[in-house]
Amino acid sequence: MFFKSHIALKALTAFAVCCFASAAAAHTGDGINSGFASGFWHPILGWDHVVAMVAVGLWGAFLGQPAIWVLPVVFPMVMAFGGALGILGVPLPAVETGIALSGVILGLLVATAARAPLWVASVIVGFFAIFHGHAHGTELPDVFNAYGYAVGFVIGTGLLHMAGIGLGFLTRSKPGLAFVRGMGGAIALIGAAFLFGFA
């Protein structure tokens, strides 16, 4: 009896706290007023960027050594090169198409567990990285601290790759392998949604 009333009291207290809680204001974008935060959240809050960068880590995990770390090393450096082109105002055609297509292609490579020589994989990943970087470079808000933006942008991107590699370790078990390949399919679909204007 005491046990039941104790739980009921806890539930009532929790309910009351929930009723009086103010609205959550996290991730509204209003608070992103520093260069670092802006750069950090820029790749993480855009699904078209997120899926491609996670796919890089996943595909690297599929390809094994040394691709598992070469691809996440190549991607930020080439992406920063694309970002530099954007900052310098060098035009690049079909940037949004390239970003959406990266989700489709990289997603399909993961879904089909495609094998490729290291240099081919690096060229594919590097090619798409330029589009992602260019978009970030041209969308840099003038009011933000440029140095902070650069550091935040690179760390945000790197953490997404780490997430991809971490998920890629699931491929060591059979159910995990199926899950990761399924994720590749989902990534390709998200990329297609951006490519055909559904997202």
Partner: peptide, 18 residues
Amino acid sequence: WRVAASWLAATMTLILAF
């Protein structure tokens, strides 16, 4: 550490552009 170096390289590329 090689990944850390790549992050430094990427940051320096952007700062060089700025």
